[in-house]
Amino acid sequence: MQLDHLDRQLLNLVQSDFPICPQPYQVLAEQLGITEQEVLQRLERLMQQDVLRRLGGIFDSRKLGYKGTLCAMKVPQDRIDEVAAVINSYVGITHNYLRDHEYNMWFTILAQSPAKVEQILNEIRERTGIEDIINLPSQRFFKVLVNFDLSGED
């Protein structure tokens, strides 16, 4: 998959500064010196290529009343797929990674209360038979940033 210079400029713009106005793609087009139609076509292609996962609102979960936590469990190698299917079935579990440690399955939970988090964890224990899950709620938040600077890459 090849991203050209214009793709990278466009991705940088839409990551950080998407205009909130009636014709946002037109505004981006003017910034890039191309037509609105071309902006839409490029974004559509980047979605199809799965470079662009989503274009939408990015919210502050705390201000929406949600609590976040990070959890980890020890899953036997031959049960990874089966246990991942259980974990991934929860809407509030947005990220799940396999990591190189005895605690090998690491996932995040967003829920409207600590009690709701506990309820999800108890369901997971029941559905998988795995009791050892560590729950590591955040106590202080310093930074979250998910933008990647692509401009210097060609």
Binding site: M1, L3, L11, V14, Q15, S16, D17, F18, I20, C21, P22, Q49, D50, V51, L52, R53, R54, L55, G56, G57, I58, F59, D60, K63, L64, V146, N147, F148, L150, E153
Partner: peptide
């Protein structure tokens, strides 16, 4: 659009933006 601006000004929405697949862009 007026509500979107209000929701953003209240800090509830950080911005409208794109989420990328990191491994597809070299990270």
């Amino acid at each position: 659009l007026a509500r979107v601006h209000a929701i953003q000004q209240a800090g509830i929405m950080r911005r409208i933006g794109a989420a990328l697949r990191h491994h597809r862009v070299g990270f």
